[in-house]
Amino acid sequence: MSSSRRAVLSWLLCAAGSATWAGRAAASLARPLELEPLCAMSRVALVGRALAAESRWETIGEQRRIITTTRVHVEDVIAGSDLGSEVLVRTLGGRVGDVGQIVHGEAFLLLGERAVLLLMEASGGALHVSAMAQGHYPVRNDPSRVPRLARSPRMPELVGRTGQSAVERLHRQPLDEGRRRIAEAWKHARR
C-alpha cells in the first residue's frame, strides 16, 4: 500500500470517529471529471445542508424510477446563480413505501449533513447534482475540528484517474481551500 493511500485511510479512520454523518461508497463506474468542466456544466456551487427529502415514482426516459427531491438550505453560494435560501435537488433512488432503490454512483444526500454541491439545471428547471456523485462533497470535521471535504457516499469508481479530477482536487481539502479551488475553476471555466 502506498504511503499516500495509507494517509488517506488514516484520515478516513479518524473521520469515522467523529460524530458527523457519512455514507457508503457504493458505486458504479465513471470517468473522472476535472474541476473546470464540472463547474462549466453547473449553474451554481454552494454550501448547503439537507433539511428534508421526499421520494416518488417517476418516469425518466420510459423508465419507472424512484426519484428523491431533497430540500437544501443554502448557507453560502460559492459561485454561480443565487437561487435563494433553499433549493430543491433531485437525485435517483430513494424509498416509496416498502420499496427502496439504490442507484450506485448517484449523489446520496444525508439529512442534516453539510455539503458542497455543484448543481446543474435540467430542462424544466429542476436541479440535479452535476455528474452525479462527482458534484457532491460532504463537509466533515477532522480530528482537529477543521471542516474538510469528503467524497460522496456513493461515489462511483473513477476510471482513469489523472490526479487532476475534481474529486482528487477537492477530497480532504479544508472547506475554505475547497471553496477557493471551486471559485477559481468557475472563473476559468467561463472565460
Binding site: 458504479s28 463506474l29 465513471a30 473522472p32 456544466m41 432503490q101 442507484v103 452525479m132 458534484g135
Partner: peptide
C-alpha cells in the same frame, strides 16, 4: 437518460424491500 451523467460508464440500480 440521466442528467449530467455523461461521464458515468455503468449504472447499477438495486430495488429492495426497505423493511
Amino acid at each position: 437518460p440521466y442528467v449530467g451523467a455523461a461521464s458515468t460508464l455503468a449504472l447499477t440500480t438495486i430495488t429492495f424491500n426497505v423493511k
